[in-house]
Write a protein that binds this DNA or RNA. Structure first.
Length: 417
DNA sequence: ATTCCACAGGAAACAGTGGTCC
DNA sequence: GGACCACTGTTTCCTGTGGAAT
């Protein structure tokens, strides 16, 4: 390795000790890191009192021995949907405990459990079905969807359960797998006896999600609906002030920096997650600088760091073909699909790789577009057809950095100007 | 007004993989 | 050990698109 990055130097143990000792002794800005994550759920969720009350009212039917309506919750990311639902359910469980009543609440995210079968498997895991004898379990794979559903319903019947099934990011499940599984669960109550039930709470980031559902599923799933509006900049400010009190030492963050975090997050989508992330990363940047306070520059640097880190991770973990596509876009003059595909094919030949079809490459481009790594514009050239203009929106430095350890690409990376 | 280009993108099929069941 | 199952990434086939050229 001729890289000057790696030099043989004598290790200075005293210096390392100093670093660690300083870390332990120095006063840090952040006194409670946990409060700087969106998942941290405070006792009272800001500005969601009405929503919390409405969800609680829907679920309170359980305490009177009834089955609550299915519920669909809509809202952009970072509007507190998941946190509110989790909070209400925790309280419901406490109340039910007081009344000696048992309810089961499997809570899953359809982005992680992204196929119908994985949802069934997760439900089985969370409900404890997989602690039963083997032929009653829902294994990781190998069963048909019908059999897995039957085993879950059978368990509910045998154990006489009341189940509230919460599926977060339910839209991504329906996008990929259709609504069969939802149909089965909304109809499941017909197959179990009166004192048992399954109710569904679906949490969706997309308002148009309902349009993709079969009318029968739509009517039973959305017995009740609720929309979480994005936070306003003023509300974000209040949330941040609240978190700052918990997270930082006194006077660590001036109002101007809080305002900037709120403004940057509020300008886009009113995303509280983003606002809190900016605060956390800003604090980390300030800490590393040895500063006692977080100023506006730290917040701006935090924004850059978040963007750079996300892009770097996506690029680094991409498949070889996605990486070659990115290199083809860099090398393409006008960014037309056709030209880009030709370059991609020749790069594949140079790397002794079998090129994927144009159809698949179109798909990869649209994935990159969704991730915000490229922008695409459809241009009509009349008689000369219709094409996409693809433009890269990430700095070449980030790409070079992310690809530099890829052995396959090593022969063409120096071409990156 | 019609033709035609160069794609976009939906739908279905397929191959390979990793698993269970009997 | 063969039948069966789901998942992922891909290919194949196909229809739709909008404006310059004719």
């Amino acid at each position: 390795m001729g890289n000057s990055r790696w030099k043989c130097v004598e290790l200075n143990d005293d210096k390392l000790d100093d670093v660690f000792n300083n870390a332990i002794e120095s006063k840090t800005l952040i006194k409670n890191r946990k409060t700087l994550t969106i998942d941290y759920v405070p006792e009272r969720l800001p500005f969601r009192d009405n929503e919390s009350t409405m969800i609680a009212q829907t679920l309170s039917v359980i305490l009177r021995g009834g089955r609550p309506s299915n519920l669909l919750i809509f809202g952009k990311p970072g509007t507190g949907k998941t946190a509110v639902v989790k909070n209400v359910i925790e309280r419901l469980k406490h109340k039910a405990d007081d009344l000696n009543m048992q309810i089961t609440v499997p809570f899953m995210n359809a982005k992680t459990a992204n196929t119908s079968y994985k949802i069934l498997y997760e439900i089985a895991e969370m409900m404890g079905i997989n602690k039963e004898e083997k032929k009653l379990q829902v294994h990781f794979t190998g069963l048909s969807l019908g059999e897995a559903t039957d085993r879950i319903l059978d368990y509910i019947r045998r154990k006489n359960l009341r189940v509230v099934l919460v599926i977060d990011e339910i839209d991504s499940l329906v996008d990929k797998n259709g609504d069969d599984i939802l149909y089965n669960f909304t109809r499941a109550n017909e197959r179990i006896s009166a004192e048992q039930f399954i109710s569904l709470i679906g949490i969706s980031n997309s308002l148009t999600f309902k349009d993709k559902l079969d009318p029968r599923v739509r009517s039973s799933l959305s017995e009740e609906e609720m929309v979480f509006n994005p936070y306003t900049i003023e509300q974000l400010k209040d949330i941040l002030v609240d978190r700052c009190k918990l997270a930082f030492t006194e006077h660590a963050i001036p109002t101007a920096a809080i305002n900037l975090c709120a403004a940057m997050a509020g300008r886009e989508t009113g995303d509280a997650r983003k606002a809190i992330d900016l605060l956390r990363v800003g604090a980390e940047v300030a800490e590393r600088e040895g500063s006692n306070t977080i100023n506006e520059t730290h917040v701006r640097l935090a924004q850059q760091k978040i963007d750079r880190d996300t892009n770097y991770e996506i690029l680094k973990n991409s498949t070889s073909h996605t990486k070659i596509v990115i290199l083809a876009i860099i090398n393409s003059k006008n960014g037309n699909t056709g030209e880009m595909y030709d370059i991609y094919s020749s790069l594949c030949t140079r790397l002794q790789q079998e090129p994927l079809t144009q159809r698949r490459i179109t798909q990869i481009i649209s994935e990159l577009d969704q991730l915000g790594l490229v922008t695409t514009n459809i241009v009509n050239l009349g008689r000369y057809g219709r094409s996409q203009r693809i433009k890269l929106v990430i700095p070449l430095m980030t790409i070079r950095e992310a690809f530099k350890d890829d052995i396959l690409l090593s022969s063409i990376i120096p071409d990156l100007k």
